[in-house]
Amino acid sequence: MAKMTIGVLIVGIYSALTFYLGWGLKQWLEAMKWFHFPVLYWLVLYIISFSVIIGRVHKSLRLFSVIGNYWMFIFEYGLLLCVTAQIVLWLTPLNNIRLVGSVAVMVFLILWIVGSYLAYSPVVRQLNITMDKMDSELSSMRVVVASDFHLGVLSNKKHLQRFVNLSNEAKPDVVFLAGDIVDDDPKWFVQEGMADVMKQLTATYGVYGVLGNHEYYGKKIPAFVEEMKKAGVEILRDETILIDNAFIITGQEDITNKERQQLEALKLNEHLPWLVMNHTPDDLTTPAQAGVNLHMSGHTHRGQLWPNQYITARVFELDYGYKKKGQMHTLVSSGFGFWGPPMRIGSRSELWVVDITFQ
């Protein structure tokens, strides 16, 4: 009963915010003399606002899922600009709805264009670190780290090809895919033939990945792992492997799995560099104390859309970038893809090229 009450409350607040956004847009349309058919206007607005839910009812309603993803961007920035426009109208001498509304719409369109560019034009981040050689025979190693592809309808085969091209240009020794590789369900990965692209990845010691929370949401993990295997990606599920007696790789289950093993139980060798993938950077203290040399995560998207990064920065000890915690090097990527709207503001699609020097 309590859950139902909370659900009704959330839907009520969301519907009220949608009404406020629609009311603000209606004011501007009326000032421009473009507002007609009010019943149709409100009907379409609320259908769009709940399109994320509608799209999950049946696979034939896939278009609504796409619309729902774009709506997330419209909702967030529409509200921000609507509030800003109202403040300008109320607190300044500029009392011209037509002018203020037009400026707000222009800013929104600019954000749409810039956000789309930042999402679909990934960059390569460079990082150089030094770690204890221990008993490894290697003097150096280059790894590529990427996360949060959310491969599906909008983060598509073409976008995956961008990653493969950039990764292969770096000529890595190892490629790490730190979770949320597909957007819930691997069916789009299969239907679009993305395995043919993923197979093009080249790395001296192979390509390894872990599960993220969205693989769990999709509830098709065995199928996902099998598809990744066909694509040349070894998914590590609470597994530790030894590579050429030179270094160790551990892939943890995501924190979504409440039965995942403790990291200490996965430790294999005290005398070789230890590289760990854990999709969600929820706990950096445990791996640092366990002796991990390089810890890699994603999940946060760096908020993806401004000002959400201020929230992720409060939630996680490290929500983006590089940090050295004790003797452990920690890296959190904002992701190569995106979740929801194919836009980024205040973040950018990326992969990391990490050059490791052993001494």
Rank of each mutant, 00 (worst) to 15 (best):
E253I: 00
V39M: 08
F247E: 06
L111P: 03
Q359M: 08
T357Y: 06
D283P: 02
G298H: 02
Y117T: 04
E239N: 09
M134Q: 06
I221G: 07
L331I: 15
R56N: 11
N168Y: 06
L91P: 02
I53T: 07
G303K: 01
L94G: 09
F189W: 10
G212C: 02
G55I: 03
I356A: 07
L21K: 04
E137S: 08
G326S: 10
Y14I: 00
G298S: 09
T18S: 07
Q289D: 15
S334G: 12
M72E: 14
Q86Y: 13
Y117K: 06
D238S: 10
P186F: 15
K171P: 01
I241E: 02
D148N: 11
E137V: 09
K26I: 00
E215R: 07
I243W: 05
R125E: 11
V210E: 04
K199Q: 13
L111Q: 01
F189S: 02
W352L: 15
F75E: 03
G68A: 07
H299D: 06
L211W: 06
Q200C: 08
T240M: 03
Q27C: 11
L284F: 09
N245V: 04
I6Q: 10
L63W: 09
Y205C: 08
G68Q: 04
T300A: 03
I241S: 06
V11K: 05
F336E: 13
T18M: 04
G337I: 13
A2W: 12
Y14P: 01
E234I: 14
I74K: 00
S139T: 11
G55V: 03
S167E: 11
G251V: 12
W188D: 14
D135W: 00
L294N: 09
L111A: 12
M1K: 13
I97Y: 02
Q359A: 10
M141P: 04
V103A: 14
A146Y: 02
T204C: 01
S347Q: 04
M106W: 05
V175Y: 05
N308R: 15
T92P: 11
M72D: 13
T357W: 05
K26C: 08
R314P: 01
M4D: 10
W339C: 05
F50R: 00
L118Y: 12
Q261V: 15
S65Y: 03
T240G: 15
N95A: 15
N128F: 14
K325P: 00
I249P: 12
L211M: 11
G340T: 01
V57C: 06
L94Q: 06
S15P: 01
A231Q: 05
W42P: 01
F176T: 05
M328E: 02
Q261D: 12
H299C: 07
